[in-house]
Write a protein that binds this DNA or RNA. Structure first.
Lengths: 235, 235
DNA sequence: TAGTGGTCTAGACCACGAA
DNA sequence: TCGTGGTCTAGACCACTAC
């Protein structure tokens, strides 16, 4: 039994993903949604409000609620699934698996994953496409202890993020972001013909006390932005 | 007249900032807060819920609400002062003011600042040095309404961030991060001799309902990283 | 003026945690 | 068992927008 406001959120997201509600489309008012779903206005409101705070909808007092423009804006706070992000934009997602193997951890990988040097860890390299345009390459090193069946997954159907969320619910991540020049290999993976700058995101995720994954995620600078809304902490 | 739930949020944040409520401290229950502030439980709940979604509080059903660990509010969330960051590393900070002027807002600037096109806004360009190495150039466009005395500040002594925090306490920011190739002007400002990729951060900050500042902040990719710790949302 | 979102109330039932 | 957070209701008043 999912909550009613979750059902309404799902309904709205499906409309957006299917393309039925395009960018700037008018979303039904709170009262309309409350009627349609036979819930109180407060419940309908919660669904719309949460999507608004996630940046998926824009609301204007006195006017209405509209579908926000989602062009290439990845969320910085919530770790979203790349496939979800692309389909939420109404685009088609495709993934190709470049590597999926077992390797012996060299020192920096072993340290990052908190395992012994030369012990076996899993490695995957996957390229993600948005409407057949390469928008991300992710190289992951996986702690086998946390995800023993990693190698037998079909990552053209399920993203690593989705799979890992199931087997090892993620609780924490450390990130660094920097601008880098793409290596030759990255150019090949992302089908870059000019050496445009890329955004490199290093992510180390933990579940409880175990390090699950150490990932290097590269976006071509021209086609991708990370964005989000932050509120200020104290000082 | 600020909303009641905002007052409760402010109360809780002050308790945490002052150190009265440390990490893992138990926050009053929704019912207690509702009583204390003479509001309904739904209103008290909203305050606690929003802080929880910002990662400042953790909630456990049946148990209570607790102050989250503050380490997580890494530099990507909390907008830190560049001078503080550099001195915290034990290095010496220096700033040079390249531009400090009044300009007429062209359309994109006017829209970003929510002012009329061709109205006067302030502009500053400042380069920050870490031990005499240029590590950041920040170009800011300021809404004069929010910071009328901006032009008379000495930004070699005080950073714009520090000044703006005083005159217009920041409440919210929208960011995008992308990798870009530096323009010729940026190369000159940052003393870059090769065209290394740069991290460009676009930041739009608001105080209450006014847009205060629209900033473009550029870091040379080789010398700077943005980092932070994130916790995962649901999905 | 009619409709919208923003805020708020005073109740309610439930599942869960701790004692 | 009692208090907690999670969800939900059926109203209400206001400020704002669009017509």
């Amino acid at each position: 039994m999912t909550a009613k406001f979750e059902q309404i959120k799902k309904y709205i997201l499906e409309k957006i993903e299917s393309g039925e509600w395009q960018e700037n489309a008018l979303v039904p008012s709170e009262n309309k949604l409350a009627d349609d779903f036979a819930v109180s206005r407060m419940t309908a409101r919660r669904a719309v409000e949460e999507l608004s705070q996630q940046g998926i909808l824009n609301r204007t007092k006195g006017s209405g609620t509209y579908v926000a423009s989602l062009k290439g804006q990845g969320s910085m706070f919530e770790i979203k699934d790349i496939a979800d992000e692309i389909t939420a934009r109404g685009h088609q997602h495709k993934a190709t698996v470049i590597e999926l193997e077992t390797i012996e951890a060299i020192a920096p990988i072993a340290i990052a994953l908190d395992v012994d040097v030369d012990s076996e860890v899993f490695r995957s390299v996957i390229v993600h496409f948005d409407n057949n345009k390469a928008v991300q390459v992710e190289e992951r090193f996986i702690n086998p202890k946390s995800a023993p069946d990693y190698l037998s997954q079909d990552f053209t159907e399920t993203t690593p993020h989705e799979y890992l969320s199931q087997v090892a619910p993620l609780t924490e991540a450390r990130h660094t972001i920097e601008a880098v020049a793409p290596t030759e290999q990255v150019c090949e993976w992302l089908q870059l013909y000019n050496q445009e700058p890329c955004l490199q995101l290093i992510r180390r995720t933990s579940s409880k006390n175990d390090v699950v994954c150490f990932a290097r995620i590269i976006y071509p600078g021209s086609s991708y932005r990370l964005g989000g809304q932050l509120t200020f902490g104290k000082h």
